[in-house]
Simulated assay, not measured.
Amino acid sequence: MKKIILYLLLLCATPQVILAKSYQIKSEKEFKDILSKLVAGDEVIIANGNYTNWNIEIPNKGTSAKPIFIKAQEISKVTFSGDINQTLFKLAGDYIILSGITFKKCTLLKGGGLIELKNSVNCQITNCLFLENTVKTQFTPLVIVSGNGKNNKIDNCTFTANVDNQDLQVKITKESCPQNTLIEKNIFTNKQKVSWKNGNGGECVQIGQDPVLLGLQEAKTIVRENKFINCNGESEVISNKSSGNSYLKNYFENNDGELVMRGGHDCIIDGNTFKGGTGGIRINGSGHTITNNKITNIKTAIRLMYGMGKGKQEIGFYIVASNCVISNNQISNATTGILVGDSKEVDWTGKFDTVRYPSPVMQSIAPFDNKISGNTFLNTKTEQVNQ
C-alpha cells in the first residue's frame, strides 16, 4: 500500500506533457478560428489549393525547442494569387515558422506586403516562392521586417519576375529598427526595370529607407549567400541605408545595378562574387570594409563617391566615402578597377527637399582617409583612378 501511495504522489507531482496539435485548414475563417488555441509546438497545415486576400495576424509564441509551424500541405501546391488589398500573413509573435507557400501573380492594390514580420522575435520565412507578383503603389515590398523585433530569418525563398516592387525590406523608422535579421540563401531572378518615372523602388533587398535622417540606426542585418541574377529593377540591386550590416558571400550575375552603400556606416562587404552587368560596389558613408570580393566583366568594379557631408555628424543627402578599407579584392576584365571620387561636383538643386534634408546640394567633398591595398587586377585598363 505504501508503494502505491508513493507512486500516486510522484505521478501528481510530475508535470503533465502537453502534446502538440496539428490543425489542417482550408480557409481564412478556419485559420482564425484556431488562432487562440495555438501553443508552442503546434502546426497549422494549409490544405493544397488556391487562395486569395487573406488577412491573418499571428501573435502566438512558440519556443526555440517547439516553434509554431505554419506550412503548406505540399510545397508548390498552396498558392495565393489575385487582387490583394491587405497583408496576407503578419507574424507578430515568437518562434513562428512560415514555410512552403507560393505567392504567384498577386496584384498588390495598396501599400503593405504579402508577408510582414512585425515586432516578431526568432521568426522565419522559409522555402516560399514569390513569382510574377505586381504592385500598384511605388516602394511596396513583398516581404517586410518591421518594428522592434529581433533575430528573424528569411531563407531559401525564391523571388522571380516580380514587377514594380521591392522584394525584401527591413523597415527602419524613428521609432523602430529590427535587429539581427538574417537574409540567407535566397534567389532573386529576372526582375525587369520598374515603370515608375523616377526609376526607383525596384530593389531586391533594402535595409533602411531614409539614409539622411536614419542612416545611423544600426540594424545589424546579415545578407549572406544569396543569388542575384538578371535583376534590373533599378540601379540599386541591394540598397543599404543603415549601419552595421554585413553582405557576405553573395553571388551577382548580369544585373543592371550595383550593391550600394547608399547611406549608413560601418558595414562589411566580404567574399561576394560579381559577374557581368553594369556595376559592382558603390560606396558612400564611413567605416565600411570591402574585402575579398571577386569582380569580373564589369566596366567600373568599385566606386567611392563624393558627398555633401562627411562622417557621422554632418547631414548630407550623400555622405562622402571615408575611412573605408578596400583590400584583397580580385578585379578582372574591367575598364576601371577602383574609382576614387565619382559624382564630383554633381548638382542636386531642386532634386530633393532641402527643408526636410538641410544638406548642401553639391557633391563637393572628395573621398578621404580610405585605405586601399592588396587588390589584384587582371586585364584591367586602369587599376585605380583618383578624381
Rank of each mutant, 00 (worst) to 15 (best):
M1Y: 10
I5S: 11
Y7M: 14
L11G: 13
V17R: 08
L19M: 10
L19T: 09
S27F: 08
S27Q: 00
E28M: 15
K29D: 12
F31G: 01
I34H: 07
I34R: 04
L35A: 15
S36G: 10
K37D: 15
K37Q: 15
E43D: 04
E43F: 08
I46L: 10
T52R: 15
T52I: 01
W54M: 00
N55G: 15
I58M: 01
P59R: 13
S64Y: 02
S64W: 06
P67W: 02
I68G: 11
I70M: 06
K71T: 11
E74W: 05
I75W: 08
S76H: 15
K77Y: 03
F80I: 04
G82M: 03
D83F: 14
I84G: 03
K90P: 09
A92Y: 05
Y95V: 04
I96M: 07
S99I: 07
T102W: 07
L109H: 02
N119T: 03
N127F: 04
F130L: 04
F130N: 00
N133A: 01
T134R: 14
T140K: 04
T140Q: 05
G147L: 04
N151M: 07
N152A: 03
K153V: 12
N156I: 06
C157P: 00
F159I: 05
T160D: 15
V163C: 02
V163G: 02
Q166L: 15
E175K: 14
P178T: 11
Q179T: 02
L182Y: 06
N186T: 00
N186R: 00
T189P: 04
T189N: 09
K191W: 12
K193S: 13
K193D: 07
S195A: 07
W196V: 05
G201Y: 06
G208D: 04
D210N: 09
L213M: 15
L214T: 01
G215I: 01
L216K: 09
L216M: 14
Q217S: 09
K220S: 13
I222H: 08
R224G: 06
E225D: 12
F228K: 01
I229A: 13
E234M: 07
E234Y: 02
E236F: 05
E236I: 03
E236P: 05
I238N: 00
I238L: 03
N240H: 09
N240D: 08
K241V: 00
S243Q: 08
G244L: 10
G244R: 07
S246P: 12
S246F: 12
K249N: 14
K249W: 10
N250G: 01
E253A: 11
G257H: 02
E258S: 12
G264A: 02
K275R: 11
G277Y: 04
G285Y: 01
H288E: 06
T289R: 14
N292R: 09
K299N: 04
M305V: 07
Y306T: 04
Y306A: 03
G311V: 06
G311Y: 03
Q313P: 08
Q330M: 14
Q330H: 14
N333K: 13
A334Q: 00
T336H: 06
V340P: 00
G341T: 00
S343D: 03
W348K: 11
K351A: 11
D353S: 05
T354Q: 13
F368G: 01
N370S: 05
I372M: 09
S373H: 15
N379P: 12
T380M: 08
N386I: 14
Q387H: 14
